[in-house]
Amino acid sequence: MKKSPMKLESSQTISGVDFENYFQPGSLKEALEIKAEYGRDITIAAGTTDLFVAYYERLHTIKNWLDLSKIDELKYIKFSEKNVKIGAMTTHLALKESEELKGKFPVLQAAAADVGSPQIRSRGTIGGNIATSSPSGDLLTPLLSYQARFKLETAGKSRWAAAEEFFTGPKQNIMGPKEILTEIEVPLPKNDSSGYWIKIGRRKALVISTLNFSLVLEFNKEKISRAGLAMGSAAPTPVRLKKIEEMLVGKSLDELDHRKLGEEVKKQIAPIDDVRGTKEYREDVAFETMINALEDIESRRG
């Protein structure tokens, strides 16, 4: 038999003094108790695809760790009559592959398929994406479009937050020091619906969105009965553009003035200049994307 190329003894020197506690609970109940005790002095580790980048070369500065990766009760996609419930530790890969999500939430699934790369999708979680609250988080715009809500739990208590009330600034949200995000609930569209998703970036993979866009329209006898429009990397938080949604509801697709709606989108967003694109570029792309989205939906509905 061939000799293993592996070293037989570990040669690494473990300092072990730079961190205080590492918790890897097997149940949500234990996790909530630990979070209640440590509050903001503990760092939650989910898929760690953002955490390890944010703390690159200074991981040793994290004193207390709360690792949720072994809590299997937070990994699920469950359908009921009115909605789908997704456990916070469900990965992008699981969302992308879910047969049940196919057809029902195409925009969410398309966004999950565009996150990072295969190596990131297998680890990154929907809960991590939400709690990190990046203005460019790819799942956040579809969750706004579908009007999802998030379950925030503490030991003994829980509350629900609407997606559009959750994000308060770049990487900021309404979560309290003792809360853990445990579940995402997305209502099933009531009528037949069509959607559009696009991620704009400099490359097709491994890129932070320069802009991302999701539109979900529900139709009742070809009149738009509900609209969900959201954009990412277009403001300090992912934003739902309610004013535009109101302009869509009650109309049929052929009654819409695409250019006028594109102009209105431009007015409603507040992008900045950064390494991924200028404010002006983002506004122009938002304008074009709105037009493309409506044309695409129209052509698919014939």
């Binding site: 390890f52 980048v53 690159y56 295969p118 190596q119 990131i120």
Partner: peptide, 29 residues
């Protein structure tokens, strides 16, 4: 890169492609 962007550190972990630079060792238990 050490930041999950290049794929040079790719391993297959529990059947899935994984960037090993982004995995804390205790999660590989």
């Amino acid at each position: 890169c050490g930041k999950g962007e290049c794929g040079a550190c790719t391993v297959i972990m529990n059947g899935e492609l994984t960037a090993s630079c982004l995995v804390p060792a205790p999660q590989a238990d």
